[in-house]
Design a protein around this nucleic acid. Structure first.
Lengths: 223, 223
DNA sequence: GGGACGCTTCGGTGTGCACCGAAACTTCGC
DNA sequence: GCGAAGTTTCGGTGCACACCGAAGCGTCCC
């Protein structure tokens, strides 16, 4: 029933676009928190959530008296990234706070469920250098499964098969690929659980710890 | 200066979306022809072209007294396909003419500059079966360069390097990947010049000839 | 050069939709 | 149960923008 223009119309509103960008950060967010982040009244936000849900772009789960939203499927994140690439070099942010936020986004951020930004690209590079991945212009293939198991505890064979295993995702800020797909998601899980990066509570940007800098930027993957 | 929502707003208008879908067909089209195809007044179309050009989504070349439009870069086509995937199973077309057109689109179409639809996926499969490409869930790498040279006259080393050489593009109708990127463009050129497929004059759909059926669907690539 | 063609600019019309506040509804904690 | 917190529904306001026709301006053809 839906056409391309209908989907685009959902993304064309500044508020809805900001909602989806927040959800690109990964974890589900309750409606009230989203309203505060994007700066609209709860009633306004409620209407937007209803539209996005009806279109199948997000799913909303009731948890007690709050309703938590997250992206419905990886394709949504892919379309958002494709549009962000079209939008090109992002708007020069105005104001110190915005500049800091933007610098943090460039450094490290979660892109739906995987690691992006300077750190994401560095991780991809170091995995290629180790032979764990093989780069083929703009995308990746698994190279050394044993390395992934040893260094990260990731068993490639055990990863979910519903989605693409490993995919190059052209980084929006770096213009070079980072690792997406099921393996990308697994790598972000490892980075979070080992304390290499921590989620900030104000958006998609991630804080990189000292240990994380060594592991991700310098390629010392073993804990 | 532009944000994701601004780009999406350009795609959110039904008329502009149809314009871009027409341009996805590949060759540049003059403004008047576009106006006729999408069914608006020339003055209306002119305004849309100006907006799309200002945003860098299309380029418009003056050729004599007519102005021809085409997509500005591959990223635009990629974003359009990503959105089309989100839109999901296309609207069930109403009316015999629309049904026929849709069936033709599913069978074979040009997707910006490469081959898509059932035929595009079949070609990708046969190239993998021959070892010319290596499939790695959802995307491809070049396998046997000699085969590509022998069967198609495509010298991989001579392909333009500005863009990704070979890329899997999740087919909008088939839900399986076809061959995109510089190699995908070269393959469509070969298919057109050998008469395997012919452009219809009414849109993105392609007609598959008898020879083309043998070559593309059955994998008899040598002329 | 005159006339047809192709396209753009301009002014006026109409519709769609994002926004908020107030009120109703559900869930939680005590 | 009762008040508070979280969310949705409803009504009213205002702006943005797609559309067309008429007029103007280059370009081609004879």
């Amino acid at each position: 029933m839906s056409e391309l223009a209908d989907v685009a119309a959902l993304l064309a509103d500044r508020t809805r676009a900001r909602i989806l960008e927040e959800l690109l950060g990964g974890p589900a967010l309750p409606a009230g928190a989203l309203a505060a982040r994007v700066g609209v009244a709860p009633s306004t936000l409620s209407g937007h959530l209803a539209k996005l849900e009806a279109a199948g772009l997000i799913v909303v789960r009731a948890r007690g008296r709050r309703r938590e939203a997250e992206l419905a499927r990886p394709e949504v994140a892919e379309a958002l990234e494709a549009l962000a690439r079209l939008a090109g070099p992002a708007a020069r942010p105005i104001g110190l706070r915005a500049v800091n936020g933007h610098a943090a986004l460039r450094e490290a951020r979660s892109c739906y469920d995987h690691l992006a930004g300077r750190v994401g690209v560095a991780l991809a590079d170091s995995l290629v250098a180790r032979g764990a991945l093989v780069a083929s212009d703009g995308t990746f293939m698994v190279g050394d499964e044993a390395y992934l198991a040893d260094a990260f505890g990731i068993e490639v064979a055990a990863l979910p098969r519903r989605r693409t295993l490993v995919r190059g995702c052209a980084d929006w800020t770096e213009r070079r690929p980072h690792v997406a797909g099921a393996l990308g998601a697994a790598l972000l899980d490892v980075a979070l659980s080992r304390g290499w990066v921590r989620r900030r509570n104000d958006g998609r940007a991630l804080n990189v710890t000292t240990a994380g800098r060594v592991a991700l930027m310098d390629g010392e993957h073993t804990r």
